[in-house]
């Protein structure tokens, strides 16, 4: 069946072989796999994961048609929700890693062991005024006022930040 608002040429319904759609999903998944396996930029790796999730969505919609069953399309919404949560967490990790290593290359973050990288450098925004949002309290204020990152109270490694 076809919706009435569509062009008459589309009104004949889906007359294409559905296995092609599954093939498209497999090809897209392969492209995403290529991105995750080959690229070292953490942002592009996350984008590749998105491609793989979309490939799964394509296959879900294709089989929803094959079996004339709407659940496949409902599952696409759950998949999109998972993708949204994954992107939010993934990008938060990207920001945390970038703050620590000043890099988006995963090889620079290969070392998650007990290494002391010194104080956490703040995320530098372009054109950000040094004093312009100081609503964190006095500890941050003293850091901003010229005593740079080497001050003893700010030279804690990440692990100790929780107790501070």
């Amino acid at each position: 069946m076809a919706a009435s608002f569509l062009h008459p040429l589309l009104a004949a319904g889906v007359d294409m072989p559905l296995e092609w759609v599954v093939g498209l999903g497999l090809a897209l998944f392969s492209v995403g796999l290529l991105g995750v396996a080959c690229r070292r930029n953490i942002l592009i790796m996350l984008l590749s994961v998105e491609i793989m999730l979309n490939a799964a969505n394509v296959v879900l919609v294709a089989f929803s048609r094959v079996h004339s069953e709407l659940s496949g399309q409902v599952f696409v919404f759950f998949s999109m929700t998972v993708a949204a949560a994954e992107v939010a967490i993934g990008l938060a990790i990207v920001i945390a890693v970038y703050r620590l290593r000043q890099s988006t290359d995963v090889d620079d973050a290969a070392d998650l062991g007990e290494v002391d990288y010194g104080p956490v450098p703040p995320l530098k925004l372009e054109g950000e005024d040094q004093h312009h949002h100081d609503d964190h309290g006095d500890a941050d204020h003293s850091n901003d006022a010229g005593s740079d990152g080497a001050a003893p109270d700010s030279a804690e490694p990440i692990g100790a930040a929780g107790e501070a």
Binding site: V21, V58, V61, Q73, F77
Partner: peptide, 10 residues
């Protein structure tokens, strides 16, 4: 592709 497959809302 989804429109072609008549999954309009998706």
């Amino acid at each position: 592709v989804y429109v072609v497959l008549e999954a309009y809302f998706v």
